[in-house]
Design a protein around this nucleic acid. Structure first.
Lengths: 217, 217
DNA sequence: TAGATTGTTAATCGATTAACAATC
DNA sequence: TAGATTGTTAATCGATTAACAATC
């Protein structure tokens, strides 16, 4: 056993739970500022529009224990969430494709804590190479192969045009990348041990537009 | 009945289905380029890693009918999807907060068809006001109230700092906005008839990081 | 002590997957 | 005709919600 965590965490948290956890973290950081030392699941649920039982179950994955009548220790909960999500350690990433969305993510990570540290960005566009955005250098794409040999980066952020997504993804895997955050619309096929997290803006646009059109019939 | 659609669509498509539809659309546009006139659900499923029955059920919401042994007409399917999602009509939007993410979305929409047309962006930062990104003017925040009176914009994109999200969201609602695409980490509370679509980058980061850490135990 | 809240087990709900008849 | 695929109905699976005992 090489488990180094402070809390006994659940091994496989459901994805919906995982997606809610950053919301709890953000809210708890706010109430901590206000000096709230303990907080109950019903209180959290009221604020975040969630069933109190849902909150209890979600928080249970972090391994934190609450006290009946009192709730959870705010400070302990924040640390357990950060620990569980890996937001408190440095998760190094490479980004490929310093276009609009890529540049935004580079600038974004400075302010929002996504738990990610983009070490370098890569692009084939001569005009972009050499620039610095959000403190991150944009390097020539070919440099990826050299740099990945020296560093041990596990996460690749894919913000290229759709038509090169598959090719770049394969390059990243050959460079030792274990997880790819795919912002393109392309479906990428990789060995099954590689984690691919698809984040398509158009999926959200689709849900929004449909709900709007449904409402205004 | 003022239903003007060409196809008999399902009234309430499940959200997971909605999120998959843009993926079908993107794939179908590709195969159309290759001159494929008909395509079957199993073929689509193989490419997109989805159960063929799932594909059949998903596509059924658009009202398109397929032929046994043949599949669906590519062209018809594309149009039905665009129609169902509202991607083929102009969905006008305002954007508030022309920071990193806001700028990216402004530049992004030029290339990616999200079915949205951002008419104008608003910010309080003097340095940003007057600039143009992706063909969209950044205006003084107060102009929002004048402009919304003349135009009938229903969608608001929220890319402000977290601490002003609630306030800006309320302003947008007062300006006649019916749906808000919230990119901030803040939970915003609005009248229940207003549609709020939360899109939190940290939720995706959370899933990615956890899956990566689970894998490398 | 009384009672609010945790934590767990059971019931419900909705989406995915399987089964199968209809059909081109 | 034979057989692959659609379209629908049933079974399964997983997440949410409800119920309730334990406890501080």
């Amino acid at each position: 056993m090489n488990e180094k965590r402070k809390y006994k965490t659940k091994s496989h948290a459901p994805e919906p739970t995982l997606k809610r956890l950053p919301g709890y973290l953000y809210f708890l950081e706010q109430v901590k500022e206000e000096g709230v030392l303990n907080i109950s699941a019903p209180t959290i649920g009221k604020e975040l529009d969630l069933d109190p039982t849902q909150v209890v179950k979600d928080l249970a994955v972090t391994g934190v224990k609450g006290k009946p009548r009192v709730g959870y220790n705010t400070y302990e909960l924040i640390h357990a969430l950060e620990d569980f999500l890996g937001f408190n350690k440095v998760n190094e990433a490479f980004l490929v494709g310093a276009g609009n969305l890529g540049s935004a993510l580079m600038a974004y990570q400075e302010h929002q804590s996504l738990g990610l540290k983009i070490l370098a960005a890569f692009d084939v566009d001569e005009a972009k190479i050499g620039q610095t955005i959000g403190g991150i250098h944009i390097l020539e794409y070919n440099k990826l192969f050299h740099l990945s040999g020296r560093l041990n980066v596990k996460i690749g952020i894919l913000t290229t045009p759709n038509h090169v997504a598959q090719e770049v993804a394969e390059d990243l895997v050959n460079c030792g990348i274990k997880a790819i955050w795919n912002f393109t619309s392309a479906k990428i096929n990789l060995p099954k041990e590689i984690i691919v997290q698809n984040t398509s803006m158009s999926s959200y646009a689709a849900v929004l537009l449909r709900r709007l059109n449904d409402a205004s019939l």
